[in-house]
Amino acid sequence: MLATLDAHLLNLNDRQHLRGWQRFALEFLYFGIKEARACLFVALFFAAVVLVPRAGLLGVPRYDLLLLIALAIQGWMVWAGLETWDELKSVCLFHLVGFGLEVFKVSGAIQSWSYPDFAYTKLFGVPLFSGFMYAAVGSYVIQAWRLFDLRIRHHPPYWMAVLIALLIYANFFTHHYIGDYRWYLAACALGLYARTTVLFRPLDRERRMPLLLAFVLIGFFIWLAENISTFWGVWRYPNQLGAWSVVHVSKWSSWSLLVVMTFTIVAHLKHVKARIHVPE
């Protein structure tokens, strides 16, 4: 059924007869359908986060169950043709990048957050399922790129995009030792992508929006998902150990910067350079 839906979404017929509010309503409907479809892995994974009891099931700890569920979802998506092997490789890379960051952040010297529950699949204090939270972001970007037939105009030079992505990732580590340069990096990203536009096709016509706006919006929804996860005790920040509180809004900026890095990885691993316009 989902394969049929994908085929339909990727082959929408020309609808020149649509005008005014009818076109707006239908484009908005298809935009929502494509967004929901792109969030398939995200939705299923975070449904498991909410629904799996903290005590686990049948003697299996919660973190271990979440790992098994994430692997099952990922395997099913590849088997059903909803994700290609190349896309799976990209998702695995996001998992490794995220897991490396998690290991650093929960280490005894840093302790930015913690995973308080027991699990058999914990490594260096980090449950292996945690990497899928980062992989979920990558999965969304990959699926959205295909479903919306994304094109990028006025992309910055590749070496600059890669450099800013590496610096963003490095700052997640180094700000514990040499200061937080997040806002300087954000200013650099703002300058690099100020002219960059993303073209997308919700129905039969291309629409456009600033790529920076897309980064900010995706970062906001990740921040909301983080609040849900901490509310259900999947992990906790130090200020949430006594009682839950809303994750500080500054994390929104961190997630938006992470989306910049994610976008750069997808753009290269999916070999879409031919579809990205780099002005001479």
Score class of each variant (00 low, 15 high):
residue 152 I to T: 04
residue 44 L to N: 11
residue 37 R to S: 00
residue 150 L to N: 08
residue 193 Y to I: 02
residue 272 V to M: 13
residue 109 A to L: 14
residue 30 Y to P: 02
residue 76 W to C: 04
residue 69 I to S: 05
residue 247 V to I: 03
residue 68 L to Q: 11
residue 92 C to Q: 13
residue 72 A to V: 08
residue 90 S to E: 09
residue 98 G to Q: 00
residue 110 I to E: 04
residue 24 F to P: 14
residue 65 L to R: 01
residue 179 G to S: 10
residue 178 I to D: 03
residue 19 R to N: 11
residue 24 F to D: 12
residue 191 G to S: 09
residue 76 W to D: 07
residue 31 F to R: 06
residue 129 F to Y: 11
residue 187 A to K: 10
residue 97 V to F: 06
residue 200 F to H: 01
residue 155 H to R: 12
residue 101 L to G: 14
residue 104 F to P: 02
residue 208 R to N: 05
residue 253 S to M: 11
residue 66 L to D: 00
residue 77 M to Y: 02
residue 100 G to I: 07
residue 146 R to C: 06
residue 6 D to V: 00
residue 116 P to A: 07
residue 78 V to C: 01
residue 22 Q to M: 08
residue 3 A to M: 09
residue 64 D to A: 08
residue 126 V to I: 06
residue 213 L to A: 13
residue 207 R to C: 03
residue 145 W to V: 07
residue 63 Y to K: 07
residue 61 P to I: 00
residue 101 L to K: 07
residue 27 E to F: 02
residue 147 L to K: 04
residue 211 L to Y: 01
residue 275 R to C: 12
residue 245 S to D: 05
residue 96 L to A: 08
residue 55 A to Q: 15
residue 55 A to Y: 15
residue 226 E to F: 02
residue 81 G to E: 00
residue 141 V to H: 04
residue 128 L to P: 12
residue 52 V to R: 01
residue 208 R to L: 07
residue 48 A to H: 02
residue 91 V to P: 12
residue 24 F to L: 15
residue 262 T to Y: 00
residue 64 D to N: 12
residue 130 S to L: 05
residue 87 E to G: 04
residue 223 W to V: 05
residue 218 I to D: 02
residue 274 A to F: 12
residue 229 S to V: 13
residue 158 Y to A: 15
residue 6 D to I: 01
residue 206 E to Y: 15
residue 88 L to R: 10
residue 180 D to H: 03
residue 123 L to E: 08
residue 230 T to Q: 02
residue 127 P to V: 01
residue 40 L to S: 00
residue 169 Y to E: 11
residue 150 L to V: 07
residue 58 L to C: 06
residue 24 F to T: 15
residue 36 A to G: 12
